[in-house]
Simulated assay, not measured.
Amino acid sequence: MDWFYAIVYGIVEGITEFLPISSTGHLILTGNLLGVPWTKEVKDTFEVVIQGGAILAVLAYYWKDFLQIRRIGTDRSQQTLWLGVLVACIPAVILGLLFGDAIKANLFRPSVVAWALIVGGVIIWLLESRRVTPNVDAIEKIGVPRSLMIGAVQCLALLWPGFSRSASSILGGMVLGLDRPTATKFSFYLGVPTLGGAALLDFIKSRDILAEIGVGNVLLGAGVSFVVAYLSIGWLLRFVSTNTFKPFAIYRVVVGVIILILIATGVLSNGNLA
């Protein structure tokens, strides 16, 4: 059954990584609801490593744009863009190093994820209900100071499991004047070093752990994640070009309420999922 779990994890990761609905929350709940028999270490590592598939999907989708990095030595806009991306990662790296283990030990519970989904959904609805005219329509125009602030807002996802890295970075960008497509695209770019670095580090450190379920299953999960994430990126960009994020707000609240009901009825354990 390891191959089946790998496929399911890959699908969930690919769909949820870039949508503002929390991949972490959905992955840990998926493992809990399916009763995946892997050890804690294997599940934790597998969930991080298959993010690499989703990150490769970003590189594949924007491969022409990423080739522009060759001009970074002479192109001021490319220098500003990539300096902004790197600076935006700093808050998450610092918080992860300082508090990552403590957060996993204490906050990776279904109830915490449920409330993160609900609160995040309410925030999305309220922000989308405001009439704010964006003044940034391209990621090259974001600038380093604004990028750093988006990176700081992104830390909500680290501090509160289930809030969603995509949601926090996209909403942070919109509050700071980015239009929806630009905020969404910058969130994709920001995920490359943030998630790609974590996936690569976990793979290097935990190859022996992943051997318990087989290299083939790891590649299967990452491959499925790549394909599904690639499709999700294209769909989300088309969606935000003509729609608000309110449907995601409703989805988050509904899922959060369902999780709380499952906990209250004893169907879902509220034990630590990490």
Rank of each mutant, 00 (worst) to 15 (best):
A198F: 00
I263R: 09
G197K: 08
N106K: 06
V8Q: 03
S129M: 04
T265L: 08
V113H: 07
I55L: 07
F245G: 15
G177V: 02
S232F: 05
L148T: 01
I118V: 12
V93F: 10
G10Q: 15
T194Q: 04
I118T: 08
T244D: 12
L67P: 12
L33N: 05
V119K: 03
P161W: 08
I28E: 05
I123Q: 02
P193V: 04
A116N: 11
I55F: 03
A198V: 01
D179T: 05
G173A: 03
A222H: 11
L34A: 15
W125K: 11
T39V: 07
V58C: 10
E17M: 09
A88P: 12
G96Y: 06
V85A: 05
A6H: 02
L56Y: 01
V153A: 13
V8C: 02
C89D: 12
I209D: 15
L220M: 15
I139A: 01
L86A: 08
V224E: 10
I142N: 15
F226Q: 03
I90R: 12
I28V: 10
Q51K: 06
K40V: 11
N270Q: 09
K246A: 14
T45R: 10
A264D: 00
E41Y: 07
P161N: 12
V12P: 03
Y9N: 09
V48Q: 07
F4I: 06
L176W: 04
I21E: 02
K104A: 15
S129D: 07
F248G: 14
E47N: 12
A157C: 08
V175Q: 10
T30P: 04
A116R: 07
L95Q: 13
V58P: 07
T74P: 00
I250S: 14
I94K: 05
F245Y: 15
T133F: 04
S206H: 14
P134C: 12
F18A: 07
S168K: 06
L59K: 13
G216C: 11
F18C: 08
D179K: 05
R165M: 06
V228W: 02
I139D: 01
G177C: 08
G216Q: 12
G177L: 04
V267A: 15
S22L: 05
S22K: 10
I69R: 09
I103N: 10
G271F: 08
L231A: 13
S168W: 06
S164Q: 03
G52L: 09
P145N: 00
K185N: 11
C89V: 09
Y5H: 09
L95I: 15
R146H: 02
L176V: 04
R71I: 05
G121N: 00
I103T: 10
K141M: 09
P145H: 01
N217E: 11
V122I: 11
V175H: 07
L210C: 15
L86E: 02
R252I: 03
M1F: 09
L29G: 00
S269V: 04
Q79D: 11
A105L: 13
A183K: 08
N106I: 03
V153Q: 09
L148E: 00
G25K: 00
F226W: 05
M149W: 06
A249M: 06
M174S: 04
E13I: 09
L86F: 01
A54Q: 10
G172D: 06
V48R: 10
T45E: 15
T45Q: 14
V136F: 12
K205Q: 12
F46L: 06
I170W: 00
I139G: 00
T80R: 01
Y9E: 14
I103P: 11
S164K: 01
L201H: 07
I259L: 12
I28P: 04
